[in-house]
Amino acid sequence: MTNASYQNQKVRKHYDVAFPIVNTVILILLMFVTLYPVINTVAYSFNDGTDALKAGIGLWPRVFSTKSYESILSDPAVYQAAWISASKTVIITVLNLFWTSMLAYTLTRKEYVLRKVITTMMVLTMYVNAGLIPNYLLISRTLHLRNTYWVYIIPTMFSCFNMVVLRTYIAGLPEALVESARIDGAGDIRIFWQIIFPLCKPVLATVALFVAVGSWNSWFDTHLYNASKTELHSLQYLLKMKLATTNQSANAANASVEALTSSAASKTTPVTIRCAITVVSTVPILVVYPFLQKYFVTGMVLGSVKG
């Protein structure tokens, strides 16, 4: 072994020892950067409103106060919005699982005569889209769903992406399951409900998570179709409106922090209220997603690579 290559290997050894340490440090920093804005928001939400205007709050509230939460939890509009958000999320999730898995099953049946045409038309929709305005005209002018609760449900009760995820999964199940049931005289509806559907649990969990999060997080449908109907506002839309008002008042607030501080009648400000609503609307997601992690990872891989 020449001296140079020996040196080279020694250097490499040093790298190999240092790498795991550097790697761990980088990943810990990344976790910190990911969590900082979240914890910062929680800290603001528990801070006294007028004190929060001075900014500079990090990971812990400076002047602790639960006034922001008391304020939003005594506001009937928040309860109404939470009810709208929760109910539409549940309904859309159930409908999606139902339609999506049923269609996915039929598209795995090779003998089905409409299989090719339906599959092609479905997959095409993932790349070709009529666009915002034609969809808007369909929903508001043709179907008259504006200012109704139905606008949350009807346009989003089926998703092609999720159908592809499920189809890939069902196609991977043993064909003998279907064959033996058919010999026993079961029709396709029974085969699907009694045999295939229960076997899809892990991937159904993934689809349920995707659909539920999408529905819970949506604000644009309210903005576009139900903005003038306050009793149909969702939680995210409420937060979006708070965003707009704090934007406007932020400039005014910066100019007169002193004035506000001295005349503080209430102990809340738009900033702390906004943070409190953010926390309230995020908690349901935080509670659910870590438990579904192993499922959605499989689901993502099924959908995107084999799509």
Binding site: Y44, W219, L239, L243, V271, R274
Partner: peptide, 13 residues
């Protein structure tokens, strides 16, 4: 999993 509304609210802070 966070909505864009929430992320923008955080970004503004």
């Amino acid at each position: 999993f966070l909505s864009m509304v929430i992320i923008v609210a955080m970004a503004q802070n």
